[in-house]
């Protein structure tokens, strides 16, 4: 009985973890954990990328939407601004999931880099459109690049948790 309950609990955690970890990443992005560095990496979008490839069936679209809305609410951006970015990333990876599942890690890493450039253009475009001025995209580019650079460590950690 107890073992059965424990097993169910473990299974429940296993099913919830991908989405839960994305919400945790959204909250962690609000702390200056890496304050020593001149830039802060973004944990959320590599996390969405990883889980969409490996556990897409456990990532419901409304969950990604809610994570984006929470990110906007906590980050002070207009509601829907980062949500769009998350959904674009999710949709793009979902479409190429079979290819990415069978691709080498290096290839998957490169795809993340190019996707981060695409996301940067989307975020910069929306922010520039809203503020009606050409914003400097350099900090965003550096932040996204730093997130991509840290992706192997994140993958290592998530692989351990996943297995």
């Amino acid at each position: 009985m107890f073992y059965d309950m424990l097993l169910r609990y473990k299974l429940f955690l296993k099913y919830c973890f991908p989405l839960f970890s994305i919400f945790i990443a959204v909250i962690l992005d609000r702390f200056h954990v890496f304050r020593a560095l001149p830039l802060e990496p973004n944990l959320t979008f590599p996390m969405i990328y990883y889980w969409t490839i490996h556990r897409a069936e456990l990532l419901p679209v409304p969950g990604i939407f809610l994570a984006g809305i929470l990110d906007d609410a906590l980050g002070g951006t207009y509601l829907g601004q980062n949500t769009l970015e998350f959904l674009f990333l999710y949709g793009a990876v979902l479409g190429q999931r079979q290819y990415l599942l069978n691709a080498s890690f290096f290839m998957s890493w490169m795809v993340l880099f190019f996707l981060s450039l695409g996301l940067m253009v989307i975020e910069w475009g929306i922010a520039s459109l809203i503020s009606q001025t050409w914003l400097d995209a350099t900090p965003l580019f550096l932040e996204n690049t730093l997130s991509v650079v840290l992706y192997p460590w994140l993958t290592y950690l998530l692989n351990k948790i996943k297995d």
């Binding site: 679209v61 207009y78 829907g80 949500t83 674009f88 949709g91 479409g95």
Partner: peptide, 21 residues
């Protein structure tokens, strides 16, 4: 079906962004 759902939520996000703006 999932990609269609993503598209629907992208539209909802655009609508939310408009309301928020």
């Amino acid at each position: 079906r999932k990609l269609f759902l993503v598209f629907v939520f992208i539209l909802i996000s655009v609508f939310t962004l408009g309301l928020s703006y």
